[in-house]
Simulated assay, not measured.
Amino acid sequence: MIKARYKVVAVMSGTSLDGIDIVYTTFDYNGFWSFRVHNSETFKYSTYWKKTLSQLVGKSIDDLKEIDYKYSEYLANKVLSFISKYNVNGIDFIASHGHTALHQPENKLTYQIGNQHIFADILKRKVICDFRIQDVAFGGQGAPLVPIGDRLLFYNYDYCLNLGGFANVSFENNKERIAFDICPVNIVLNYYVSKLNLEYDDRGQIASKGKLDYDLLDKLNQLEFYRKPAPKSLGLEWVKAHVIPLVDLFNLETPDVLRTLTEHIVIQIDRVLRIKGSKTLVTGGGAYNDFLIERLRLKSKSVIIIPNKEIIEFKEALVFGLLGVLRDRNEINSLRSVTGAIRDHSSGKILFPNT
């Protein structure tokens, strides 16, 4: 039923493996969309799941299916804990991104785990999920999907920049929403800082003490992906094939690697934020990397705006909640101008619990 208010629990797991982001939010429509976040929490992954999810690339489809079932069960129980903890009731549905296991749109292949029917059965509620698969079937990249939310919820900004596992951006251009992945961020920074037995480089302090290696920086900036036109997207497979082997060739100390990668990230983002005096909303875990943000502010023509903690950490989960609402209304939630699909469409699988 089309209505003006939706109460949604939305779930997101990103490539940086920070954890499972869950938000309880209300969306209202009164000629335009608005939202209110009631509760939000990130559930850190157990050692088992962090290891399992980091090793999905290279798994057979049969192995992935087995992991998929277990992960759907795991995800559902985390959502159940969230609902119980915050005494959430009266929701319309759960909207879930799942977790990217394979992303090869050029081969018409994308696989999000966490979308099995057991998810709805455990929760005993309607679940809207698996938002990418239809777009890839329509010839699209299946990513990024957040830009429709940027357009409808964060229209006061010229650019919406997310610094998660990857940097991605969205903006309006000639009345079309344009969006694409820019470069890897936390997926590589966290990989190299893990060699120091750390989960992440707190506020970029280690990177700030490293030396810039101009030869490596030049090689990184010459990677073929950066010359491709949008739409385009990145996955863990690309990082493992192109970035890590290149960095490892230089045999640098970890602080120098982090410093050089940070500069690489800033250069690639600066190439995109072209409008002088424009406003850029920055979200994702990278917004807490003070050194990265400092370098970006020094380099960029755009005004870099860091919002409140809730938006920094939960914007993607929030937007997937909106994607669920749009799917429930059978309204467009995936834009051909963003993904390269043959048409705009309403994407997502709807699961009803078995009674």
Rank of each mutant, 00 (worst) to 15 (best):
N221M: 08
D218S: 15
G164K: 06
L223T: 05
R177E: 14
N221A: 04
P231R: 14
F180P: 06
L236E: 07
N174R: 11
Y192P: 02
D218G: 05
R203G: 00
P229M: 08
Y214Q: 13
N221V: 01
E176L: 12
N168Q: 09
L217H: 00
K175H: 14
L220P: 00
R227T: 11
N162D: 05
D215E: 14
N190Y: 14
G164F: 09
G204V: 05
G210C: 05
L234D: 02
E199R: 10
N168Y: 07
Q205E: 15
E176F: 10
E199D: 15
P147G: 12
L220Y: 04
I148Q: 06
N221G: 13
K232L: 08
A230K: 09
S208A: 15
Y226E: 05
F225G: 07
E199N: 15
Y226K: 04
A207K: 03
K232T: 11
K209W: 02
V169A: 12
L198S: 08
A167V: 00
Y200W: 09
C183M: 12
F166I: 14
G142L: 05
R177Q: 15
G149P: 14
F166V: 09
N168I: 03
D218Q: 13
K195P: 09
S194I: 03
L196W: 08
D202H: 13
A230D: 08
F225I: 02
S170W: 04
L217Y: 06
V146M: 11
C160P: 01
R151D: 15
V146L: 06
D150N: 08
Y226Q: 10
F180Q: 12
N197S: 13
N156C: 04
E172G: 04
L220A: 03
D218K: 12
I206E: 02
A230Y: 15
D201I: 00
Q205C: 14
Y200K: 09
P184G: 11
L145Y: 05
P229H: 09
N168S: 08
E199F: 14
L163T: 01
K228P: 00
Y226W: 07
G204F: 04
P231I: 01
D215R: 12
P231T: 03
D181G: 07
S208V: 03
D215C: 02
L220S: 00
P144R: 10
L189H: 06
N173T: 06
D181V: 08
V169W: 03
